[in-house]
Structure formats: structure tokens, C-alpha cells
Design a protein around this nucleic acid. Structure first.
Lengths: 308, 308
DNA sequence: TTAATGACATGAGCCTAATTCATCACAGGT
DNA sequence: ACCTGTGATGAATTAGGCTCATGTCATTAA
């Protein structure tokens, strides 16, 4: 009933619960099963002799006791994280540079805010983006020219490399509200055939729609390219063609009604992002924390982004 | 390398280490083996890639990293304890009274400071001492007339009662520096035969020397009694007889040279104290914390007091 | 030097307990 | 009624923390 019995794991659970609003969501964020959290909560409730959350309401609500423990978690966990950083700084003679190889334009949208947040935690780390937009950035890691690479979709990592899951997002088709395809509840590959597809100026393999949907269906629509996301959206809004972008990059435009979004395929087109490091990099605290931070931050900031 | 891996258990270990100055002492305070702490530290050192303490020097010293984690523990653990109290208050409608049955006079010496400390943590608990000096205070617990009883020496608790170890102390013989027995390095039972023994006015069974040393040896010295510890010490200092008291009650008098202390028996006379509660009481947070607090406080405040 | 003592290290095995797995139950929405 | 999402539950599995029985090392005494 006293100090022990409430473990760090429990505080992390409470924090995730507060942000996700359901056991199952919180579980996947913590890389655990829903069952684990259910058991955890049950144990706590037995221990304290009172319930911590009301689960019959969505999103779930914290009881007074649950809130007290939640505020504890909110004060304690950051203190521990800070101590962990200090120790890492002391243990491994001051951290090196962190050069990030990115494959896709979209990445900047979530990478930038994450880098900003990270910089306050590890001011001495030299952050750098390597944006050659290479097809395969993994060799850069082995060659020591980058510490981190952002990888699309699950694949078998080479022995020298470690993958860490970041998150899953959905790519949606975007079109003018007056576009004829806007009438359909969802688009299939064939719908793209007669359209002009507006994309970033990169190879097809680096475009989610092409790689996962159109190329397999042997459909190759007309193209028009733009460097910037806003430019693509402008073209879409003025009816010059359709585009396919991650759902969370276009929140504002959707809300204002300039464009509408439709799932690609009946169940949507889901893409996965992984962070790749060398085995050594996966040990280094300052790199591990960058991965953890981008993951959490993206999961909380962006709607339509989910844990994997 | 980051947040997780440092558990509450580790912080408690660091705290105990800082106070005890050795693995083995800290271990017994935590109710663990020395081996457990050694494994714990090893795991942490592997995890952080650096050592936390220098063990080749006594008392052991913390490295910079160890100190950082120690200060973390010193901030985090009290926060968790406070949250635990708040939750207990919320969960079990405000705690009841805490009436403590004591057998011996000496107990006041450590009970009073502990009660003062406890009162600031649980102001709403009504503290009370029941000092009938009964031989067997356990029935009071069953009858609901006390919540806690202080018990001397290990014994088999009745089924309705739970014992919690408090600490072990040593009773020493006290005499004037000019007393003839002061020449001996330690006293045996026979030495007391010709002396006047100065004690509290209570039955023999409640006096450590009598119960564990003289009565078994069938030695019954002359007596003189005094209510207060200071009065006993005054009589001893002026050569009116010898006394036997817990070593830590007489610190000041020893330092000033008014009296000297000698072990009773070759290896000293060690006594054990336990806290007894009903099974229900052992569940209640406000009672458990009183026990934990008195134990820790006595262990840290008084020299010659050790964990059991 | 040889014992003897005290403190920490270490590997093996045990045992607790946290997690998963495979279900079940329930609610809300269509 | 049926599906979908969410939480609960008991059993089985697994991980990892602790103890036990040693080993090593340093210090002190004979």
C-alpha cells in the first residue's frame, strides 16, 4: 500500500493511457498487448483498493486516485529521463553528430518539429539532414556517413543494421471537391489511369502510391511534379490533377474545404516508417532517444498516425 | 540506455548504499542479500557502460554518475512516497487512530522522534501511546484497543497477528569509569552477582539483562530502581551500582566520560524489536508507513542499531 | 607464510510475476 | 442480427530478480 508496488512501468502506462484514451491504443504505443495493461491496472486497483480509471466511457476518464498517480508520473518520468541523459553524457564522452538520411519529402513534416524538440534536450549533438534522396540509404550507415536513416516499409535489415519502428500512417488521395472522383467513397488503382498525378520530383519507388498501388497494377498516369507540399496542394485545389499524400500533412487544407481526401483502396493505403541505425548507434543513448522522441511526438501530434 | 532500465528498486538500493556505505549492510536494510545488490549494480553498470560506485574503498564512494542517480533517487522517491500517501488517503476513507502499546521504557527514546516525523506526514492520524507496560500486549490488538504493539525478541506470532521486524540493538553494561568491573573487556553473568543493578521499576521479564542473561544464569543481584533514564545514569555515574541499557540511549554520557560501557557476554547482548499488528492493520498504508519510518529512522539515527 | 576474517563477484537454479495467447463478454453502430 | 472495437479473464509461457553456494581478493593476526 505504500511506496513500492507502483513501478515505473505503471507510470508509463498511465501516461500512455492519458494520451491514447483506451487500453488497446496505449498498449500498442508501449509495445505491449491490451491484455498486459488490463492485468496491470487490475493489479494496481487491487493494491490500492480503488479503481484508477473509468473504462465504460470513451475516451476513458481518470478517477481522483488515477489523476494523482498521473501527475506523479508527469513529474517523475521527466526527472528520470533527464537523469538518464545526464548519465549518458557522463558515461559516453560527449555524444557525436547525428546525421539523418531521409528518403522522402514528407518526412520533413514530422522530422522538423522532432528535431526542434530534440535540440533542447541534447544541445551538444550536431543535427544534420542528408537529403540526397537516395534509393537505399543503408550503405551510408555502414560507411559512417550517417547515423540514422529513415526507411519505408518493413524489410529484412542487413546484419550490421538495426531497425526500430517509428509509426504507421495512411496515404490518401487528394482532389478538388468538384472533381468527378470525389463522388466515390474510395479510389482504386484504375481510377488513377485517366488522371494527372501530382507528385514530388522523385523516382516512382519513393512514392507510396506508385510503389504500393499503381506500379503493381501496371497503371502509369500522366505526371506533374512540384517540390513543395503547398504547391502540390495548390495544383490539386485548382483541379489540375490528383495527388496522394500522408493524411496528416494536409489537415489544414481539408478543414478549409479546398481539397477532399479519399482512401486509396477499400481499406486505405497504409505505410510504415522505420529508423535504421548501426548496431553501435542503437546502443548510444543520444540516438535511441532521438528515435523514441520522434516516435512519440509524431504519434501524439498527428491524427491518422498509429503505432506499430 | 534511456529511461527504462533504472527501476525504483535501483533507486532504493542507491539510497541504502549511500547511508550504509557497504553492499552487505545496505542489503540487510533492504531485506535482500548482498548478492542481489551486487547483481543489481552490475546490471546497471553494464547498462550505463560505466561504474556507479568505487567498491575498493570503505565506506564506498559514488562516482559522478552514481551521484547523479543518487540525487535522482533523493528527489523521486519522496515524491512517490507522497503520492502513495495521497492515494491511500483517497482510497481508504481517512485513516483511523494509531494507538501504540509499548512494553519497555527504552522504546520512548526512539519512538518519540519517529512519532514526531510521522505526524508531519499523516497529520490526521491520532497518535497515542498505551503504556500500561503489560507483559503481553498482543491481546490489545485483537480486542481493538491498540493498532500497534512493540514486541521484544522473535516469537511465533498468533494467527491473527503479523510481526514486522524493526531493528536489532545491543544492551551494554554501564558503570562508573572507576568501577572495578571497568577493568574487564566484557562482563559475564557472574560479574553481576555482587553488584547493585539499577533498572526501571518493571518486572524482570521486561528487562533485557535479566531475561536473557541473569535469570537463565540464576543470578539475582541487589536492585535499585529509577523511572527515568537520566536518573539511572546519575546513579551509575556516582558509583551506586551498574545498569544495562541499549547502547544508543547513552551516547552523550559515554562521550563525556561520566560512565563507561562494556559488552554483556563475550559477543554482547543483542535484542530484537518487532512491530505487531492485526492482519487488517498490516494492510493499512498509514500503519505500514509508521513501521517503515520508525525502522529507517532508528537505523539511521542511532549507532549500534542494525537491521534484521 | 599461513590462517582467518570481511567484503564483493559470479554462475546456477529457483521461483515469482509480467506478458502473451486464446478466449469471452459487452457496447455501439449499421 | 451482425460486425467492430474494447476490455476482461484464465492458463501457459517466459523473463528476470533473488538466493544459494561458492570463488576471489584484500586486510589483519598469529
Amino acid at each position: 500500500m505504500s511506496l513500492t508496488a507502483l513501478e515505473i512501468r505503471h507510470m508509463e502506462t498511465l501516461l500512455a493511457l492519458a494520451e491514447c484514451g483506451s487500453l488497446s491504443k496505449a498498449a500498442s504505443r508501449l509495445f505491449l498487448t491490451q491484455s498486459a495493461l488490463s492485468h496491470q491496472l487490475k493489479a494496481l486497483e487491487i493494491h490500492f483498493g480503488a479503481s484508477l480509471i473509468e473504462k465504460n466511457v470513451r475516451p476513458l476518464r481518470f478517477t481522483a486516485i488515477g489523476q494523482r498517480l498521473l501527475t506523479l508520473a508527469r513529474t517523475v518520468l521527466p526527472q528520470m529521463a533527464e537523469a538518464g541523459r545526464d548519465v549518458a553524457r557522463l558515461a559516453q564522452g560527449h555524444a557525436g553528430p547525428l546525421r539523418i538520411a531521409v528518403q522522402c519529402h514528407n518526412c520533413f513534416d514530422w522530422l522538423m518539429p522532432a528535431m526542434d524538440a530534440y535540440r533542447t534536450l541534447w544541445p551538444e549533438v550536431e543535427l544534420d539532414i542528408i537529403s540526397g534522396f537516395l534509393m537505399n540509404p543503408l550503405p551510408l550507415l555502414d560507411q559512417g556517413e550517417a547515423e540514422l536513416a529513415i526507411i519505408h516499409d518493413r524489410q529484412e535489415p542487413p546484419p550490421s543494421i538495426v531497425f526500430s519502428p517509428l509509426f504507421r500512417y495512411e496515404s490518401v488521395a487528394l482532389m478538388s471537391p468538384r472533381h468527378r472522383l470525389a463522388a466515390k467513397p474510395w479510389l482504386e488503382a484504375a481510377d488513377f489511369g485517366a488522371e494527372t498525378l501530382i507528385t514530388y520530383p522523385v523516382p516512382d519507388e519513393m512514392l507510396d502510391v506508385m510503389k504500393h498501388c499503381l506500379t503493381p497494377a501496371k497503371i502509369n498516369p500522366k505526371r506533374r511534379t512540384a517540390e513543395l507540399t503547398v504547391a502540390i496542394l495548390q495544383l490539386v485545389a485548382s483541379g489540375r490533377g490528383i495527388a496522394a499524400l500522408p493524411s496528416w500533412t494536409v489537415g489544414n487544407y481539408l478543414e478549409r474545404g479546398y481539397v477532399v481526401s479519399r482512401p486509396i483502396g477499400q481499406h486505405g493505403l497504409r505505410c510504415e516508417l522505420y529508423a535504421a541505425t548501426t548496431r553501435a548507434g542503437a546502443e548510444a543513448a543520444y540516438i535511441r532517444e532521438f528515435i523514441a522522441l520522434t516516435r512519440i511526438q509524431s504519434l501524439t501530434e498527428f491524427a491518422g498516425v498509429s503505432a506499430l
